[in-house]
């Protein structure tokens, strides 16, 4: 190197940088998993993906509080699980997929003018709007 000053600068920079990188490694070691189990979503919604024609318009109904961020995430995950189906985040569609956390009485969907097509278990149901 040209001078002791340059050598010192290089070693100091590398030492600080390396310590920062190792701090990132420590952070990675304690990285938390997100609360969203995507694989579980895929297996729960797999039946809907198989049963519904890809060009169908499908809606979404949940018993979760819509103001929560996690509710938005659950809708996004449901969409991800059924691609290439397109899921609108409302129940005003001819077909609707329900994603419920606790067992709901039929009134839950009947009040929205929907009827049950198939209950896939694990809180997943396919609903439809009866033809008038």
């Amino acid at each position: 190197m040209q001078s002791p000053k340059s050598r010192m600068a290089a070693y100091a920079l590398v030492a600080i940088a390396l310590a920062s990188t190792l701090a990132a490694l420590v952070e990675a070691g304690s990285a938390k998993s997100s609360n969203f189990d995507i694989t579980q979503y895929e297996s729960r919604f797999g039946g809907i993906r198989r049963d519904v024609p890809t060009d169908a318009a499908i809606g979404y109904l949940s018993d979760a509080d819509p103001s929560l961020t996690s509710s938005v995430a659950e809708y996004y995950l449901a969409q991800l699980a059924v691609v290439p189906l397109v899921v609108a985040n409302n129940a005003a569609q001819p077909l609707v997929m329900a994603n419920v956390h606790t067992p709901q009485p039929p009134e839950f969907y009947r009040s929205k003018g929907l009827e049950l097509v198939k209950d896939y278990g694990n809180g997943v149901m396919l609903l439809r709007r009866p033809a008038r």
Binding site: A17, T21, A24
Partner: peptide, 16 residues
């Protein structure tokens, strides 16, 4: 080059 690589990874957030 070696110092550059160390500096690049000094921003450990790039890994995350």
């Amino acid at each position: 080059a070696l110092v550059g690589v160390a500096a690049l990874l000094g921003a450990g957030a790039i890994i995350r």
